[in-house]
């Protein structure tokens, strides 16, 4: 009897430790998220004001705002997404609508997955060797945009594919049976069903592009001047944050830049979540 009771005690102590450990570690994870975001927002938000957003940086970013950096970020990110979106959507269409099972397709898919795993510094080296040097584009918005386009491609393909897969087969049959061609079916029936999924992928791609630093640093350069064309060098917010932090130029501006980045990331995540939960189930049936 006594022995049994002891066994039970040991068991319950073990249980307490086990659940305590799991709960504790999960709590630590959540806490680190809150601390990181909270710390940066609290220290940075107060330094974000109209002047910071609309003035050009002075004395290497020590004073003034980050207007040219914001413009640079928009240009590089925008160009990257603009190039990647049609290619990514088309690639996803190929995988779900056109490709037949076979060795070739398996290989293409495999390399698409591989592309997603390549670290950003490698993209940076590649972009530098290929776009900047080999194609002679120099440190420029276009070099960075093309590099980013390749980087976000897997994200876009994956998101589009996931949502193409949720379109019921009966829609395709319905359209084809009316004498529509495959392409008409895709454009007029299938893609409209996927708008929320594609949009979510797009937003996540933008998030990845905005936060990207290493690859951008090696392909766009670090000029603080307002770029006048896509062939100019510029600086994105992430690169700016790195330079400020590494060189200790101005704590105030560094915190403000970091907070702005975090703010954008929060915005992006929230809107992606909203889109996928609000519009996710519109395929009916």
């Amino acid at each position: 009897m006594k022995k049994q009771k002891e066994m039970k005690n040991i068991k319950s102590t073990k249980n307490v430790i086990f659940y305590g450990l799991i709960g504790g570690l999960a709590a630590v994870t959540l806490a680190s998220l809150i601390i990181i975001i909270g710390y940066i927002l609290i220290n940075g938000m107060s330094h974000i004001n109209l002047e910071f957003l609309t003035q050009e940086p002075r004395r290497m970013g020590k004073e003034g705002g980050i207007f040219s950096v914001i413009v640079g970020t928009l240009m590089v990110t925008g160009l990257g997404i603009l190039i990647a979106t049609p290619i990514g959507i088309a690639a996803a269409i190929y995988f779900t609508e056109y490709s037949k099972e076979g060795k070739g397709v398996t290989l293409i898919r495999f390399f698409t997955e591989i592309l997603a795993g390549i670290p950003s510094i490698i993209f940076g080296l590649f972009g530098f060797a290929f776009f900047v040097i080999f194609l002679g584009m120099g440190w420029s918005v276009i070099s960075g945009g093309l590099t980013l386009a390749i980087m976000v491609l897997p994200t876009l393909i994956r998101a589009t594919e996931e949502s193409l897969k949720t379109v019921p087969m009966s829609y395709r049959e319905g359209s084809l049976s009316l004498g529509a061609t495959k392409w008409q079916t895709i454009i007029k029936v299938i893609l409209p069903c996927c708008r929320p999924g594609i949009l979510t992928g797009l937003i996540l791609g933008i998030g990845r592009a905005i936060g990207e630093t290493a690859a951008v640093m090696l392909t766009v350069g670090g000029s603080l001047r307002l770029p006048s064309s896509i062939f100019d060098s510029t600086r994105t917010m992430s690169v700016h944050l790195y330079v400020l932090a590494a060189e200790g130029l101005s704590m105030e501006k560094t915190y403000a830049t970091a907070a702005l980045l975090i703010f954008i990331v929060l915005l992006i995540n929230t809107s992606a979540n909203l889109i996928s939960s609000k519009l996710g189930g519109n395929n009916g049936n």
Partner: peptide, 12 residues
């Protein structure tokens, strides 16, 4: 969200 935070922010 943790995955969305840019690495340079983690570094900072």
């Amino acid at each position: 969200l943790l995955a969305g935070i840019p690495s340079v922010v983690y570094g900072f």
